[in-house]
Amino acid sequence: MSTTPIGSYRLFQKLHPLSLLAQLTSRRTTGCLSVFTGTVSWSIYLEDGKLTYASYSDKLFERLDSHLRRLNQHFPSLDNATRVQMRLMFEAKNENQSIPYADYQAICWLVDQEYITPPQAAMLIDELAKEVLESFLSLKEGNYEFNPDNSLNELPKFCHLDLRLIVEYCQKRLRNRQNIQSSIPSVGGSQVLPGTVPKLPKSNFIPIEPRNNITAQLPVRKSLYTIACIDDSQTVLNSIKHFLDDSTFSVVMINDPVKALMQIMRSKPDLILLDVEMPSLDGYELCSLLRRHSAFKHTPIIMVTGRTGFIDKAKAKIVRSSGYLTKPFTQSDLLKMVFKHVG
């Protein structure tokens, strides 16, 4: 298939999204259409006029995570811990740390690590594209540019979507929403909309095989992490084990700090969760002992405590702990801390 180049251009005017998409599709264009409104942007990736991905900068990973949870019945191996790790790996903390097409790279990583299959990735991309293009078709003004050299930088492609079918679906949803809005009387100056959502049509994606040599560049994840938890409270140990999914973590529970060193030597954990306040041997002393051993000089050691004072955190630094987790903590707090050091 030949591609008709349309160059790179940028206009500041009223937007006609439908006409713009029709032009790119009819010319069987390859590249990326970027649309800006000042605060947010849309990126629409094409190959020979077919859609390979569509992204919208506002709440990028919230949207991806929402669709992953919504399609949970199709992705049984994709648990909460994995989604948290995915976001920690690819979601930028600020603009200076932005990763190119981070959400698409995250999907590639999920496929590469076999959490989802290529056809499931195609299904996910299809659902994301509908939401992104629906918002894009509602635009009235902005500016845009087309870059024929930017086609997801040779990352694997999981589908080629028919833009015409997606646009027809989005237009139908927009018309339905407008009809609902016009038929519902205003209450106190605003309209009350029902919470129903039109049934989704059948997916129109064409799954294709990914390029395995490209996915090798993505971060590699271990299949199972060993986490040693040292705490004199069995309740705390049980809670941590409950929070850490069995398919991702092997949890070694140790409730006697005196025997901890030998048990840690045997288990060789990827990360150690260490309670500060324990009888016989407190967490700071045990951390110091572990750091003196060559096998644990670089093993992440997280101090777990209810103390939040400056002196306590200073002690943790002195004994070269890797982090500080304050009790009480949620599952999300624990997973973020763990994946920060072992992901």
Rank of each mutant, 00 (worst) to 15 (best):
E127P: 00
R177N: 04
Q113C: 06
E95T: 05
S183E: 09
D126P: 00
R164H: 14
R27Y: 05
L289E: 08
C32V: 12
A81M: 01
A102N: 02
S288V: 00
Q23W: 02
A260K: 04
L137V: 05
D245R: 13
I166Q: 03
D48A: 14
G49I: 06
L200I: 00
K336F: 02
C108W: 01
T117E: 06
Q171S: 03
A22G: 06
K315Q: 14
I166N: 03
D48W: 05
Y9S: 10
V342A: 03
C108G: 14
A54Y: 06
Q263S: 09
Q178M: 12
N179H: 06
Q178E: 15
T4Q: 11
F12G: 08
Q85N: 09
S43E: 15
T299F: 01
S66Q: 10
E168D: 13
A106F: 04
N176R: 14
S186N: 08
K50W: 08
S223Y: 01
Q217I: 14
S135A: 13
V132P: 06
L21D: 03
L244R: 06
E91H: 01
S2W: 01
A295C: 09
M253K: 13
I208Y: 01
H341S: 00
D333W: 03
S250T: 06
L21A: 09
Q13G: 10
K157L: 12
N80R: 13
L18V: 11
S250L: 06
G323L: 03
R292D: 10
E91C: 01
M253H: 01
R221E: 05
